[in-house]
């Protein structure tokens, strides 16, 4: 198989600009995806079979394993959502049709949780992603001790939840908390961070931002590593300053990854429950006495795990799925319209 090794060597000789053209030339000769004429028809048949089957072989591990251990439980959850079923009596469920969903639509708690999920999602995700891209950009410079900086950025994600809980409860405590103490210097009255609506949503968002900014920064950093250096070089020759390079080289090149983080963060924000739960402390699943920071994920956790209404909780889980589908559909329509108008 020395031939293929050579082919692979083409694009990366040690010097010269010429090799850049070669793959293109090769494509011209061979055509997209057409195999080179093999020495035997057996080989070419094998080759053709490989071309056809490989994609499926590559994606099959995911679908097989997920199908066996991920999909079945999720479908079960969907089945539960159509029943009256308690966590303590899984075998005694009675058919409820869409009752659980109908009840949600008429429940103030559900709409309140949806609203909170949206606002907390907004004030946590947007700054988080903006900061992450900035940090990634800085990490992408030639830095002394670059590995150490990367490691440090990911420590919030690795820090134990128990430890983070203690720290943030102490920071945001009403009486004698560090944040209120600092606010006192600028003459602001102590804020009851847990019980005020905006205060609690801000505090929860700050924990989310603290925990996930470095995480997203690393994702961006990986994508930045793949941006060709000569793009920056030619931009510099054109007189672009650092900001312009960032704006006109880095950002466009990151588009697929930005899309990825936006999708993931949207899903993550919809399902958010860990941070508000830890912020709330004892009986944190209520999200405050007026549910002022109860997200959909937290409402689901409270209903299914604490109260034991598995059917209703499952309906919340699946309505999150439906909500995300609606968001995606709106997004699609919006971009289509935008494209057409352009």
């Amino acid at each position: 198989m020395s031939s293929s090794k050579q082919a692979l060597a083409h694009p990366a000789p040690g010097s010269g600009a010429a090799p850049g053209d070669k793959p293109g030339a090769a494509r011209g000769a061979g055509g997209r995806g057409t195999p080179a004429p093999g020495p035997s028809s057996w080989r070419s048949r094998l080759y053709r079979w490989d071309m056809k089957a490989a994609p499926y072989a590559f994606i099959s591990p995911f679908f097989i394993i997920f199908g066996a251990f991920g999909l079945i439980p999720l479908l079960y959850t969907g089945w539960y959502s159509l029943h009256n079923v308690q966590l303590s009596s899984l075998d005694h469920k009675s058919w409820a049709g869409l009752d659980n969903y109908r009840n949600l639509l008429s429940s103030d708690f559900f709409w309140n949780a949806l609203k909170n999920t949206f606002t907390i999602g907004l004030i946590s995700t947007v700054p988080q992603l903006l900061m992450a891209i900035g940090i990634a950009h800085l990490l992408n410079y030639r830095l002394r001790g670059s590995t150490v900086w990367r490691v440090v950025m990911l420590t919030p994600y690795a820090t134990s939840v128990a430890a983070a809980t203690l720290v943030f409860t102490l920071l945001y405590s009403w009486d004698g908390g560090m944040v209120n103490w600092l606010l006192g210097f600028v003459g602001v009255d102590p804020v009851n961070w847990r019980e005020s609506t905006w205060g609690s949503q801000f505090a929860v968002s700050s924990i989310v931002i603290w925990r996930w900014t470095g995480y997203n920064a690393l994702i961006y950093l990986a994508a930045m590593q793949a941006i060709p250096g000569d793009l920056y070089e030619s931009a510099a020759i054109d007189g672009a300053n650092r900001w312009q390079q960032f704006r006109h080289v880095t950002i466009p090149q990151l588009r697929p990854t930005i899309l990825f983080t936006v999708v993931i963060s949207t899903i993550g924000a919809t399902q958010l429950f860990g941070e508000p739960l830890l912020f709330g402390g004892v009986s944190g699943s209520k999200g405050g006495s007026e549910h002022q920071y109860q997200t959909l994920g937290l409402y689901m956790y409270d209903q299914g795990w604490i109260i034991g209404n598995l059917g209703k909780a499952s309906a919340i889980a699946w309505s999150m799925f439906l909500i995300l589908l609606i968001v995606a559909a709106i997004n699609l329509l919006f971009t289509r319209r935008l494209r057409k108008s352009q």
Binding site: L170, W174, G176, G281, V282
Partner: peptide
């Protein structure tokens, strides 16, 4: 006005 078993 404390919440029992909170650090506060």
């Amino acid at each position: 006005k404390l919440k029992q078993f909170d650090p506060t």
